[in-house]
Amino acid sequence: MKKKIKSNLFYGLLLLPALVLFVLFFIIPVVQSTWLSFTDSYGMKSTYNFVAFDNYKEALRDLSFKKTINATTKYALLSVIFGNILSLVLALLLDSKLKFKNTLRAVFFIPNIMSLLVVGYIWSFVYTSVFPDIFTLTGIKNFTILGNKTLVVPALAVVGIWNAAGYYMVIYIAALQGISEDLMEAARIDGAGFYHLLRYIRLPLIAPTIFTCLILSVAAHMKVFELPYTMTSGGPVGMSTTMVYKIYTTAFNANRNGYAAAQSMILFIIIASITLVLNYIMKKREEKL
């Protein structure tokens, strides 16, 4: 019994520093913000009233907020699916025998080193200054990518993928390197080609990693803010206004802290549900094995 207490104390103390910081700088602020979502807190005013679920009701009626859910989902779907495919392809390419392997890995990882704000600035330069020059050079009629209602979200997704691909690539490479070489060799001797190795050995074995990357990238891309902020101001006609960008303008331009907090709670619920569903699928799959 005494030993048990001692061991609990040991593990508890190990956790303590992380826990203290976590409670101070995350739990307390988040709980406070959640409370704000039930109030009419406005701008810098120090007093506010409790309004129960009014903010939530308004959000569910607010067409322009619903529109941001669409834009965000579209952006996240594109970035998550194509981003993960690209990262996986890169990982497969760079996990095999190849000259300059390390240099290439660095090349793909470098975009991830820069903060998203910087990335946004660089790409708005690319989209607004470089592409027009290329179009003129090649004689294509000048048209604007960021001003096109259909193209703007994919254009932002390209940037998101460019930024994140290297990160997930590294995780996939790590998983691929974890597959035992003996197993692969045995399969090769049995006459398995590249496709068979991929379909029946590599992909199934790294499935847990794929799910992890899916969860991480869903959470990251659903929260996109810097790209519309630096590149489009949410336009044209609100097509690229993502949820966090909207939350930001609600809180800081319209000054409605309470409403913004309610919008954030809805975003949190959406991300959490997607994650739960992914988790559920993953668990189901593991049970089958």
Partner: peptide
Amino acid sequence: LFVPFQVYMVAM
């Protein structure tokens, strides 16, 4: 991971 920083930054 799921809570955007902008949400709780002022409270923080």
